[in-house]
Design a protein around this nucleic acid. Structure first.
Lengths: 211, 211
DNA sequence: TTAACGACAAACCAGTTGGTATGTCAATAG
DNA sequence: CTATTGACATACCAACTGGTTTGTCGTTAA
């Protein structure tokens, strides 16, 4: 009785099944893009069936949206935003996040090989699908806000000059980070990521007051 | 006789046919990515047939490679590199190129809507196909070299500090440019491109000697 | 004059893809 | 005890997609 229930619970757990689908779909989208993701591959990875997938998601697009909302955005928040929010030294915290970028989130090769999941999807889908675009734009704006707040904290501590336009600079830093990752991904070179990041850090340091 | 030849030449011009295919394929790839490009759409745009397409290109991938080699790379050279090479004032020339970015190459909306053809393809294909990756990596390196040479000229003219590492900075500038375009594309906002570009120009100005 | 060839056209094909219709089965409500 | 429902499984399909085969026709070389 107990045993049977346990088995049944293990085999039939809708929330867990849904989560497995989301994670498999994320990996497929990360590697092949949304258009390149094949539902058959998601099914194979989850060891489920097409019926199961279409029970949880009405179509491919809805699955893609759910991956953005429930996987990508929470991951960005956890990996990029949380460390910034919680750093006591805002400017150094920002530099630390950039320097630790390659080690973060996924194993190092993953990031060099496939780039940033958020930006990948944005570049692929934003001209093609307004639903994707809006979701990804939201993610970028949240991210930018956190960078901006970090810069403003640094400004209050006199770690960067008073004349610096924090909103403008935050926009640029975020764009530059994505640019660095993209370039390193195309070169398939960790060295290139480091070189590029050093340029970015040099920019951030240039915001400091001249002694 | 003359007339017949002229008609025949107009209707049967292999080089021109090939070029028409390349241009139509480029537009399809620019809008939908390589994987998203449908050969049927290329055929429809050229008003040719599948037989004609496969007469000029052995398969889809070879067509994609040819688009990179014969359309994208020459365009990058003409639009981005030539102005830099020929500018008498290197540093201001670099800034001008960035400021005129939205107007350049294609009509303004085109660039905001679909981004940079080179970077789009790089982000989509570099993890999936080594042939694409190498071609696009070559394009990025040529581009970077030109920026680096421009910076070195500026350095000789004492327009930027002697201590600046021109290779590192060139890498970063190129990455940041792509990042700015990508961000603006996701936001579908020209204003955002300008904001982001101002950050980049601020960085370039920070390389100047302090007075 | 004719055989070969280059440049395409038309028709066709096999594999893949997103999506659907139907069936099964255990849990739960009444 | 039974009807219903949620959570899947199985089988299937129409549309599409890259690619191939075969055919046409004007030009060119021998």
């Amino acid at each position: 009785m107990e045993n049977l229930e346990a088995v049944a619970r293990a085999e039939r757990n809708p929330d867990q099944t849904r989560q497995r689908i989301l994670e498999a779909a994320f990996m497929e989208m990360y590697r092949n893009g949304f258009q390149g993701m094949r539902l058959d591959e998601v099914i194979a990875a989850t060891e489920l069936t097409k019926g199961a997938l279409y029970h949880h998601f009405p179509n491919k697009r809805a699955l893609g949206y759910a991956v953005v909302d429930e996987v990508i955005i929470p991951t960005v928040e956890a990996v990029w935003l949380q460390p910034l929010k919680s750093s006591a030294e805002p400017l150094q915290g920002l530099i630390d996040v950039i320097e630790q970028m390659p080690d973060n989130e996924h194993k190092p090769p993953e990031m060099i090989r496939y780039g940033c999941p958020l930006n990948n999807l944005a570049q692929e889908m934003s001209p093609l699908d307004e639903g994707f675009r809006q979701r990804l734009d939201y993610a970028f704006r949240v991210w930018q806000d956190v960078i901006q707040q970090t810069l403003e904290r640094a400004q209050q501590k006199r770690h960067i000059r008073a004349g610096v336009n924090c909103e403008e600079v935050a926009t640029f830093i975020m764009a530059a980070m994505e640019g660095c990752i993209g370039l390193a991904k195309n070169a398939q070179s960790m060295e290139r990521l480091h070189v590029c990041n050093r340029g970015l850090i040099q920019f951030i340091r240039s915001l400091q007051p001249q002694k």
